[in-house]
Design a binder for these strands. Sequence first.
DNA 1: TTATAATTAGTAATCGTTACGAATTAAGCA
DNA 2: TGCTTAATTCGTAACGATTACTAATTATAA
Lengths: 157, 157
Amino acid sequence: MNPIVNISQQFAAQNYKLTPQREAIVKVLLDNEKDHLSVEEVYMLVKTSYPHLGLATVYRTLELLCELHIVEKMDFGDGVARYDLRGDDHAHMHHHLICNVCGRLEEIKEDWLHDLELRLEQEYGFNVTDHRLDFKGTYNTCKRNGCKGEKDCQAVS
Amino acid sequence: MNPIVNISQQFAAQNYKLTPQREAIVKVLLDNEKDHLSVEEVYMLVKTSYPHLGLATVYRTLELLCELHIVEKMDFGDGVARYDLRGDDHAHMHHHLICNVCGRLEEIKEDWLHDLELRLEQEYGFNVTDHRLDFKGTYNTCKRNGCKGEKDCQAVS
DNA sequence: TTATAATTAGTAATCGTTACGAATTAAGCA
DNA sequence: TGCTTAATTCGTAACGATTACTAATTATAA
Ligand SMILES: [Mn+2]
Ligand SMILES: [Mn+2]
Ligand SMILES: [Zn+2]
Ligand SMILES: [Zn+2]
C-alpha cells in the first residue's frame, strides 16, 4: 500500500488529520528513510517543499508520529533527538550496527530478540511490549582499509 | 577488591588522579549502584559528604568516568542524562527491563547477546565492542495488582 | 622556592526544546 | 450559506540541561 495512504489512515484512526504540513513532514521522513534525521534536519529538508512551515510544527508533528508509533525518538549521544521510521507494522523496533571508525549506521530489520523475550515472559514474568538493541563496533573492512566514505555510508551525525 | 581502590587504579593507569572531589562522586555512585542517577541527583547527594563541591565538577567527573568506561551515560527519555555503573570488568554493558506500569527498572547482568555478536562477526564482518539492550514491558504482577511501590521498585524518574 | 601543569569553583553563555498567545484553518450545525 | 467551536499552525519568548570560560586553588617537578 502507498505508505502515505497507510499513514493517513493511522492518523484518521486516532482522529488526527493529515494536514498538508504533516504530510510534507512525513514525506521528508519517507524520502530519507535510511537516515536518522534530527528536528533541525527535517526542518531544513521540508522547507524545500513547504517553505513557510514553522519549526514548532516539526516538533509537534514528530511528537505525534511518536505517539502513533510511526517513528521512534532516538538518542545517539550527539546532543539532538533523532527520529527513526519504525517500518511497516511498527510492531518490532529494528536493531542498529554503528561503526566506531566511520560512523556508518546499518539497520537489521529482522527480529533477533524473540527467543529472549519468551524467556523474559517465562522466567521473569515480564511481558515485553518494545525493545531497543544497538551494537557498537567496527566493520572488518573499515578496520583494514579505513572507511573511505563509500556511498552506502550512513553516518549518524 | 575494594571498588574504590580498583577505580583509583584505573584512574592512575590513565594518568588521572582520584581527587577528593572525584572520590566523593564515585562513592555516591557506588552507594546508589541500583539507581540511575542524573547529574543533579549526584550533585545533591554528594553535597552531604562534600558540601562545597561544584556542579561543573560533577559534570566533568562523570564525563571522565565515561571515558574510562566505568559508567555509561544513558538516556531514558526524561530530559536528563543518567549515569549507570558498568560493573566489575566493564566489558559488557548490562541489560534493562523497564516496567510500563510502575517505572521499575531491573538489571540483567548476564550477557544475553554473545551468540548474536558471534553472528554479527561471521555474517556481517562486524566486530562488536559494545552494546545496549533495553526492554520495555509489563510485569505480570503489575498488570494484575497494579504496582504498589514495593521496596524493590527502582523507578527511573 | 619557583615555575608549570592539573584541577576546581563559580557563573555566563549556549542551544535544543517547550510553552504560550495570536492567527489561521477546518468541522459542525442552523 | 453564515455562525460557532475546535483543531492546528506560526512566531517567538521562556526554560533548563549542558558547555564554555576565567580566576583561584592545588598538585607536580625542577
Ligand atoms: Mn534505525
Ligand atoms: Mn543499569
Ligand atoms: Zn566504518
Ligand atoms: Zn511495574
